[in-house]
Simulated scan of single mutants.
Amino acid sequence: QWNFPAIQIANINALQALAPAEIAKVAAVVIEPLIQGAAGMRLWPPGTLRGVRDWCSRTETLLIVDEVMTGFGRTGRMFASEHEGVIPDMMVLGKGLTGGYLPLAITLISEKLFSAFDGCVADGKALAYGHSYTGNALGCAAAKASLEVFENERVLEVLKPKIQRLSSALADLEELPGVREVRQCGFIAGIETVRAEMAAAVCLEARRYGLLTRPIWNVVVLMPPLCITMAQLIKAVEALRAAIVEVWRCSNASREKDAEEVTA
C-alpha cells in the first residue's frame, strides 16, 4: 500500500521559506487552483498559483493541479490554471468532463513526463497500470458529447454574463444576519455562516424554495449548472436569501423562548 508522506503549506510565503533540506524531499506540490473546495470554498490570494508554478520550476519540483472541481468552465475559463497563465506538469480532471452524467476521470501529463514512459514493457518504460473500468466506452462517449456541447453551444461565451449576474445577485447577501462572508470564483460561490448548524439548516430550508444544495462545514455551497437560465439563477439566490432569513428568525425565536423558560 502506498503511503507517501505529505505536508500542508499554508501559503506561497511558507512554500518559499522551505529550507533546501526540506525542498530536497519534495516530489510534487498539489493544489486546487484559485479556490479550495472541501476546505470551504476558500479563495487563494491572486498570484498564488503563478507563484507556486515559479517555485516548482526553480526547484525542479512537479506541479500537480487538481481541476476536478474547477475544470470545464466552472471558473469562467476552460481550466482555472489559465487565469494565471500556468501550465502544470500534471492535471487531474473529472466531474465536468462528462457533464456529470457518468463517472469519468482523466490525468494529463506534460510531454516531458510522458517521455519517461514512452516505450514497451520489455524496456521497462511503459506505465503498466489499469483497472476494470479504464477507458470505459460509455463514459468516454459521454465526455465526447459534453465537449461537443461546449464547442457547439459556445458555453464559455454564454457563461460570462451569468457569472456577472451571479456576482450582482450575491452582493448584498453578506449583509444578512448570520452571514460572515460571501466568496465567489466564477460560477462557484460559498456563503459562510456563523455556525455549521446554520449552514445545514439553510440548505434544508432552501429546498422549500426549489433549491437543492449542500453545506461544507459552516459554508453553504452554490454551484449552479452551467446551462442554468438567468431566471433560474436569480431564483436560486433568492431561495438562499429567504432560507437564511427564515433560519435566523427561527433560531432567534428559539433562543428567546429558552431564555424565557430559564427566567420563569
Rank of each mutant, 00 (worst) to 15 (best):
I9A: 09
A10H: 04
N13D: 09
Q16M: 02
A17V: 01
L18W: 08
P20L: 11
A21Y: 04
I23G: 06
V26D: 11
V26K: 13
V30N: 10
I31S: 04
E32D: 11
L34R: 15
L34Q: 15
Q36G: 13
A38R: 11
A39Q: 12
A39P: 04
G40W: 12
R42D: 08
L43I: 14
G47V: 00
G51P: 02
V52A: 01
R53F: 11
D54H: 14
W55E: 12
C56F: 13
C56W: 15
S57R: 15
S57Q: 15
R58M: 08
R58I: 02
R58Y: 14
T59A: 10
E67M: 01
V68M: 03
V68T: 07
F72E: 13
G76C: 10
F79N: 15
A80P: 09
S81C: 11
E82N: 10
E84K: 10
L97P: 04
Y101A: 14
L102Q: 06
P103A: 02
P103K: 05
P103E: 02
A105C: 15
E111N: 08
K112W: 05
F117C: 05
D123N: 10
G124V: 02
A128R: 00
Y129F: 13
H131M: 02
S132Q: 12
Y133H: 03
Y133V: 05
N136A: 09
A141Q: 08
A141G: 00
A142P: 02
A142I: 00
A143I: 01
V158A: 15
L159S: 15
P161H: 07
R165M: 09
A169H: 07
L170R: 02
L173G: 06
L173Y: 01
E175R: 13
V179R: 08
E181L: 07
E181R: 14
G190F: 03
G190R: 12
T193M: 05
A196D: 12
A200H: 13
L204V: 07
E205G: 06
I216S: 05
W217N: 12
V221G: 01
L222C: 05
L222D: 04
L226S: 06
M230C: 02
A231G: 06
Q232W: 04
Q232N: 12
L233M: 11
A236M: 11
A239T: 11
L240Q: 11
E246D: 14
V247G: 05
C250A: 10
N252Q: 15
A253T: 14
S254C: 05
R255F: 04
E261P: 01
E261D: 14
